[in-house]
Design a protein around this nucleic acid. Sequence first.
DNA 1: TCAAGAAGTGTCATAAAGTGTCAGGAAAGA
DNA 2: TCTTTCCTGACACTTTATGACACTTCTTGA
Lengths: 147, 147
Amino acid sequence: MFFGQFEHNLDAKGRLTIPATFREQALDGLYVTEGFEANLVVYTLRDFEQIASNLSRLSITNAESRALRRKIFSSSAKVSYDTAGRILIPANLRAVAGIEDAVVIAGAGDYFELWSAKTWAKENASLNDSGMNSSRWEAFDIPTRGA
Amino acid sequence: MFFGQFEHNLDAKGRLTIPATFREQALDGLYVTEGFEANLVVYTLRDFEQIASNLSRLSITNAESRALRRKIFSSSAKVSYDTAGRILIPANLRAVAGIEDAVVIAGAGDYFELWSAKTWAKENASLNDSGMNSSRWEAFDIPTRGA
DNA sequence: TCAAGAAGTGTCATAAAGTGTCAGGAAAGA
DNA sequence: TCTTTCCTGACACTTTATGACACTTCTTGA
């Protein structure tokens, strides 16, 4: 499970050091994809390849499913670590998330997210808005123990 | 699997450099075919020959299946790389996809697609239309973990 | 049949992008 | 405090894409 929050810097070539604790949980590499917000979502090989194989089973004769394949596969990249534990984030993905220098790496359980530090600051501000917290999440009803 | 998105330029003779990571997955060449949208679809030899052999089993006494065979086979080309990793896209295929100079090469899992950069930009704009994203794909319900 | 033009292919130089290496300093743990 | 691990920035090196040019093959029409 990916926990915690880190702020790391891209180097001049767009490489990002992945926190050592995250690397240990995904030794063989990662998949980086576009998130639904202005961020990137990073999966382990195992999890993303499961998604990909489900997608590959969609019929290519259906226009909607073609569009979905196109969107997911074209906005994803398989990345591996260099000898210093960094990954190269493809330029097009950096662009969609507005990532230029400071990056927030935020654990999210099975996956983790990458945010430009600026965007993260805004998102975080709304998470902490008093008044929102109490009611916003009620609908999800998350149990603390398995059923 | 073909992942990610690249923008490359045709040279004056209509040749396109295939991204090195894609070439590695299809060392012996490619098949280029017309897509269902205004694009081209590129398969590995292995996959396309599978499709072709399935098509060949369709009855020739049925007019619809004759039409399908005709469409697929006549709008496909087997291409190989030159010494610089480029393929020559046949002029008729370039025409149907409106490909002239800048080309977007988009991974789609088992295959990848070629788009004129202009057409891609339009397609992409509709993919990213706010409001569409959340609901459009719900029906597909792709799980991240096996059941 | 031949010549001329078009189309296709190979080669090279250059610039951009990607990758490896290493040393220094910050941070964390003992 | 000392030791170890981790992140970062700089630099060197390799790979990749592209644009230009030369050469070959094919097509077409005289």
